[in-house]
Structures are given as C-alpha cells and as structure tokens.
C-alpha cells in the first residue's frame, strides 16, 4: 500500500479505517465450507493482538487431530474479513505431516478478524478466530 494514499491519515491522525470493524467474512468462509457446520473447536490460531505493521504478521495454526491415513487434517485455510482477497492461503496436509501445525507471515489490510479453518479427512470443518488491531505508521513514507 502506497502511503501517499494515507497522507491525510499521516502524522496526526490514526486512520479511522484501521479502527473500523468489518463484519465476519461470511462469503470468504462459505467459499471454503460450502455452508457446512463450523464449530470453534480443535483449532488454535495464535496471532498478536496488535501488529505494528500489517505487511508481515506472524501467525501459527495448530489443529488437535490424529494424522493417520484414516483420520487427518486435509487442509488448513486462512480467511481474512478485510483484505481485498479474502482467502489468504490454503495449506494441504496429510498423514505424512505427522502433526497439523504451521506458521507463516501474512498481510493484513487493517484491523480485522482472521479465521483459521481446518478441513478434516471426514469432511468436517473446525475453526478458530482471532481479532487483530493493525496500527499504521505515524509517519508518511514516500521513499
């Protein structure tokens, strides 16, 4: 994001946009689950509560599940409810993963909810959600 767009939000006002709460990303989540039941269980999403910059926010997802051929986590999907592209990524795992656990760094266009959805081999879906406050730099940077 080019800071020029934020000239007025620059030095003396934290962007009001950054504070606004977006609704839960129903379309983004629906695209993953196709409307299947989604309970907030078994998945743990660890993310900072405040990020100093939305360009690289570290997060970790772990799912409590066996990782056997018969019973495993097939995929972990990350969904943003504020980014221009709601699906951040889908990670496909399998019995050879040993453990359903991953870390990455994501871009977040402002304060929002991030949802981690686990898709299991039996077709069920589980999730965890975390809200993050993304602050903007106090200074304009057009370097």
């Amino acid at each position: 994001m080019k800071r020029r767009n934020f000239v007025f939000a620059g030095l003396f006002s934290l962007s009001a946009l950054a504070r606004a709460q977006a609704p839960v990303a129903d379309p983004g989540i629906f695209a993953v689950t196709k409307g299947a039941r989604l309970a907030r269980e078994r998945v743990k999403l660890e993310m900072p509560v405040i990020a100093e910059n939305g360009n690289a926010v570290p997060l970790k997802v772990s799912v409590s599940s066996p990782m056997t051929a018969a019973d495993h986590v097939k995929a972990i999907h990350l969904v943003s409810d504020r980014n221009p592209v709601s699906k951040i990524a889908s990670f496909y795992l399998g019995p050879y993963s040993g453990r359903a656990e991953l870390s990455t760094r994501v871009r977040l266009a402002g304060s929002q909810n991030v949802t981690a959805i686990a898709e299991m081999s039996d077709g069920s879906f589980w999730m965890d959600r975390s809200h993050i406050q993304v602050t903007l730099s106090a200074c304009v940077d057009d370097s």
Binding site: L11, C139, V140, D141, D142, S143
Partner: peptide, 14 residues
C-alpha cells in the same frame, strides 16, 4: 532510503 523516508515524513524535499 530510511533518511529519505524521514524527509518524506516531515514533508520536506527528498
């Protein structure tokens, strides 16, 4: 580049 960012921050000529 970082110094340029500061110049830009105080809205000075870069």
């Amino acid at each position: 580049r970082r110094l340029r960012a500061c110049l830009s921050g105080v809205r000075a000529e870069i």
